[in-house]
Design a protein around this nucleic acid. Structure first.
Ligand SMILES: [Mn+2]
Ligand SMILES: [Mn+2]
Ligand SMILES: [Zn+2]
Ligand SMILES: [Zn+2]
Lengths: 149, 149
DNA sequence: CATCTTGTTGAAAATGAAAATCATTTTTGT
DNA sequence: ACAAAAATGATTTTCATTTTCAACAAGATG
């Protein structure tokens, strides 16, 4: 509810209109898994709403990002991904290079050290991005099993 | 010298041929600034070697990355960038969102905390990437001057 | 050196995600 | 209901990157 109202508020304040499509896309975005690409969300939406076009999904996700309700992510496969950002705080990501699992984490120590590094170089931080790529626990187990055979 | 020999060695071991173009591109890559995009290096090379094509520059940079002599970077403008990687160790980047200046840094404390985070989630790290975006010292000074007027 | 095999080159075309276009439709204030 | 302004969706365009392919060059062999 709060999400929808926040979005409506943003739309109103910017002279944008509340449309059925935006509603549907927001709902789908909220109930779908996190870190979804435009393509993935579009496919999900198309199941129940074949009328909604790819361009509108693309534009609405961008709009959600601009409004602060969603955050864009770029994990290196050539797809922009989006996740909900209004309730959750800043976090960084552990990404499994085998199965694609994404784990979120926060580490105040790392954040603090980043501030120190920036200060040391006279930088003022606007944002940052830390991505750790590797093998998740599950994939490590599978690897062991394979070697055992 | 060492670079050229390393590259020749890599080529030889992989059944690839040492060509004039690859030599020229490696030289240009080594003497040009760091974090250059394919386009930027291509333009530089074209000044003295108009015959060398964009595709060849692209392929050679990819090859240098595969051989370990270069490292690819993605800083969010839609351009893949390359930097020399054989002599310098791992490092992360501070990137000025105003002037584009890139400062490299290493922080063992951050690296250590990353290992801890990964371990806590059962992850084994393969690689990571930390990019801090903000305003560099120079751009902050300029901003102050503007406000003073 | 001559010849052969195989990898390379460069121009052009293809690819694919993202963004723009535009005629038509929808929203919203009056 | 009406008019103005914005949104939609199919399609096209953009732009970095990658592939294609015929001509060419490198390196091995005799
Ligand atoms: Mn996340
Ligand atoms: Mn660097
Ligand atoms: Zn995994
Ligand atoms: Zn700067």
């Amino acid at each position: 509810m709060t999400y929808k109202n926040s979005f409506r508020e943003y739309l109103g304040k910017h002279g944008l209109k509340a449309t059925r499509q935006r509603e549907v896309i927001l709902d789908a975005f909220l109930s779908a898994g996190s870190h979804l690409s435009t393509e993935e969300l579009y496919r999900t939406i198309r199941e129940k709403n074949p009328g909604i076009g790819y361009a509108t999904v693309h534009r609405t996700l961008k709009l959600l990002a601009e409004s602060g309700l969603a955050a864009q992510r770029h994990f290196g496969d050539g797809h922009t991904r989006y996740e909900c950002s209004s309730e959750e705080q800043h976090h960084d990501h552990l990404i499994c290079t085998v199965c694609g699992t994404i784990i979120e984490f926060e580490n105040p120590g790392i954040e603090r050290l980043q501030e120190q590094v920036a200060a040391r170089h006279g930088f003022v931080i606007e944002q940052h991005r830390l991505e750790i790529y590797g093998r998740c626990a599950g994939c490590l187990v599978k690897k062991e099993k394979k070697q055992a055979i």
